[in-house]
Write a protein that binds this DNA or RNA. Sequence first.
DNA 1: AATGAATGAGTTTTCATTCAT
DNA 2: AATGAATGAAAACTCATTCAT
Lengths: 202, 202, 202, 202
Amino acid sequence: MDPISTSIKDQQLIEKRRRQMIKGAITLFKEKGFHRTTTREIAKASGFSIGTLYEYIRTKEDILFLVCDAIYQQVQERLVAQIDLTNSSVEHFEKVIRSYFYLMDDMQEEVVIMYQEVKSLKKETKEYVLQKERDMVAMLERVIDTCFPGTISLLDRELLANNIFIQGQMWGFRRWMLQKQFTLEDYIDRQIYFLMHSLTVK
Amino acid sequence: MDPISTSIKDQQLIEKRRRQMIKGAITLFKEKGFHRTTTREIAKASGFSIGTLYEYIRTKEDILFLVCDAIYQQVQERLVAQIDLTNSSVEHFEKVIRSYFYLMDDMQEEVVIMYQEVKSLKKETKEYVLQKERDMVAMLERVIDTCFPGTISLLDRELLANNIFIQGQMWGFRRWMLQKQFTLEDYIDRQIYFLMHSLTVK
Amino acid sequence: MDPISTSIKDQQLIEKRRRQMIKGAITLFKEKGFHRTTTREIAKASGFSIGTLYEYIRTKEDILFLVCDAIYQQVQERLVAQIDLTNSSVEHFEKVIRSYFYLMDDMQEEVVIMYQEVKSLKKETKEYVLQKERDMVAMLERVIDTCFPGTISLLDRELLANNIFIQGQMWGFRRWMLQKQFTLEDYIDRQIYFLMHSLTVK
Amino acid sequence: MDPISTSIKDQQLIEKRRRQMIKGAITLFKEKGFHRTTTREIAKASGFSIGTLYEYIRTKEDILFLVCDAIYQQVQERLVAQIDLTNSSVEHFEKVIRSYFYLMDDMQEEVVIMYQEVKSLKKETKEYVLQKERDMVAMLERVIDTCFPGTISLLDRELLANNIFIQGQMWGFRRWMLQKQFTLEDYIDRQIYFLMHSLTVK
DNA sequence: AATGAATGAGTTTTCATTCAT
DNA sequence: AATGAATGAAAACTCATTCAT
């Protein structure tokens, strides 16, 4: 299900070119945001001409979608890779959360792009992207449920999953505030510390 | 300290016109964001001509600054109004946090503007605005320190203040996710519940 | 009833600028047709910048409409000016037709523009322009009816009016064929000669 | 005499491909005109790739020429097929004219293409195409001369032939005006009726 | 102080044409 | 012979900003 039109027939080439495009675009979006980046710059950063760029997309917004989608995809994949739903130990939970925080550190800039630019997508594509975010939160909820069975209400589980989720992102988009006082390790340790208490409250 | 140039002498008029401008601009930014709003639209929504608009600002970005500044100002003022640093009771703490969450609910859309558009400010003005955010977080830290003296380390205090701060904003900028499952009261109750446990952990 | 959007408020200025635009555009359309003419060229030929051009129209097609409308308007006005419906003499009829042919000679190039470009208008504006053509044919019918009362059936009147109408245009758009053999006077004389016979057939 | 360059050797293939191209292009030109049709669309409608298209032509204009030429060719052939220069009866004349009108009805859309797009050809090719039109008019003149010998002057013959010619086309390109009031039969009957009177005027 | 017409650099997008495979 | 990916010049259109009135 590929919603982005192209006149190119070679599917492998499409993927290759789009990968180039996404890479180029992310670099530029990090630097100046979506609106201040021109399609010509994206073409150049991608290593091909403006004409070629438009063989693989229809509008500039398509690029934003491609970028957002790719970022969410990557976050999701890397998060999923850490999760073992057959392992219900508290240690596993901690490991998952910890790696999620590391992941967010690794993808700081990408996360900022998402935060600031998703709103520029149009209704349908935005909905599609936000669904991915819902999925990730649901995943965290499932991990909570697996590792702390029975103790947390559905609603609280959702709340805590959301808290975890944005605390991860916060490390990136509030780094101007946090990263002067905290090392990454400190940040993670303390967040997990409080989280554990919230989860084991009687 | 007014960093925005103008050729108008009458200070009262300047303030009146800027209030009109900010009001008009916020309405438009809510709807379509800063980049998709034109200066002409802002002038129109403000009730005067494009020529007049440019008598009171120098560039479009000035308007964004004015808007962000006004929003932060308002949040800060309304938050400060709730705080009584001579009252060190836990009840007072809870009341402050609760009213902060209500405030964030009230100013949801404005908060979203800040979130998504502050990055478009240039270095100096951005720094000026972010300082206001630091001030607010510092205020929350002070309240924590006042109401839970001695129990929380400086770093943890900062972390929790940040958590509170963004959990308030989260209610607004993640409403598509949260506001289907939670009423405002539920949300506040549960966040405060977990927060209290974090603050009273031994 | 002005269907073309503009951001200019001064009505007189709008008319002045549009007159400039129409004049510039007609010159260019004569030379290279609508599609091969760029908006920049039109702006230049009109004596103002591309930005100014777009203050007075919304799309390139608006210019085409303005041009077609102006041409039809002019043809119609000049045709109407010749018609005296209180004069039912055959001489008057001949005079009207003759002056219509002269008019078509005078506006040859404009007529060619209409012929070739009206199809590029979109449904509504095309319909609006074609109505003017219907009106003109109807006018010719009325003159026939006035000067040859009772002798010609409604349908024949319509047919002959159409014939006259396109024979006038034909002089312009088939000049490559006709204007080598015929002088304008010859052409008119012979067409009127045959026409008179058609109208007085028993 | 083939003015259109190609790198293909197999003459039969050239003709086959061009037939495909003309068919595809006519369909598209009918719908959206020459300028709004892209070469890619023509290639697709012709059943081959854009690369192949350009093996058989050099520029987009070549396609227009091919199309115009094919249309004229067809009109001419079908007209010629009706003419028997050994038959000098008035009935034969009427039959020829009648079948010409039927032909124009049959090829309405093609005729509209010619009318509106021939001007986009460049000088030489346009001249070549218009010569075909001259030939056809000359053919009508010859039929007049054959069936009404001696009665009509050369100039009048040319005028009437032109009138017939464009009255046939008029049925197509003014259908929005005519085809509401007239059936094809009525139209033909009345035009021939007046024509006959013109031809038999003393 | 206020107005709004004028400007033109800059943006997205299209599409005829080429050429390596 | 056929393909279709690549190209980039050129097009329409926008909009922040200026400045004469």
